[in-house]
Amino acid sequence: MNHAIRRYWPLFVLPTVLAFLIGFLAPFLMGLYLSFCQFTTVSDATFVGLDNYIRAFTDPSSNFLHAMWYTALFAFLSTAVVNLAGLTAAVCLTRNIRGRNLFRTVLFMPNLIGGIVLGWLWQVILGGVLARYGKTLVTSEWYGFFGLMLLTLWQQAGYMMIIYISGLNAIPEELTEAASIDGASPWQTFLRVKLPMLMPSITICTFLTLTNGFKLFDQNLALTNGAPSGRSELLALNIFNTFYGRIGWEGAGQAKAVIFFLIVTGIALLQLRLTSTREVQH
């Protein structure tokens, strides 16, 4: 068996490698090239150098810098809120309470609904609430911002909760028992024993929420579509609108996508480094 795997491993890897090449690597390299080009359809491009990058940053109508800080703010805030909520729910639902599984299921379910549907759902709900006060989601970019936060929290907290629950369940009982014998309060046990043991889960969860925050697209599209005046546009939507919405700006949109890639990769790697050094092995 082992022998067969050693011998035929390229065959087993082939489907994944092919999918990776066709689905990720080829479009990625093509996109990289296109970010230096002027084009209408992607197979018909002329090289223009750094022009697209300059336009992405300097043109006042490109809205890229605004989208950048708006997205960063959103990503970091939503990471904090979602993880706090997920962890709290996980701690509550690992106790022995009635209907534990029901609560877990209910909290997890929003994650099964697609982003566009969620966006429209929340648009109706929040729109209905705000209408009482003579406002709409697009009255200013901050209504859209908090709408998105609420939506993201609702959608992702349940998912993170599941990861935290499995992390909490994996903590060996002798550790918590030893802590209580030593006279640690529940709060101390949580901070000094459980939390360090949870670091691998925290790494994964913060990684997921942070990158999700940066990549958020369909919820943004459905909830506000960038209104008013593109000020509630997150990066992904901004790139999409530049690429598809503006004649002659396809290259600039592509350039933005390259920058976006660098930012997301950079932040994700940095975050992985920061949290994984705090992980404890036992």
């Binding site: 689905g23 990720f24 690597l25 479009p27 990625f28 093509m30 996109g31 296109l34 992607v42 990158t211 940066f214 990549k215 697209f217 992904a236 790139i239 999409f240 690429f243 949109g253 592509q254 996508a257 390259v258 976006f260 890639f261 997301v264 990769t265 994700a268």
Partner: peptide
Amino acid sequence: AFGVFSIFAG
């Protein structure tokens, strides 16, 4: 990250 990127790659 590649996932993000390929959305916009054409």
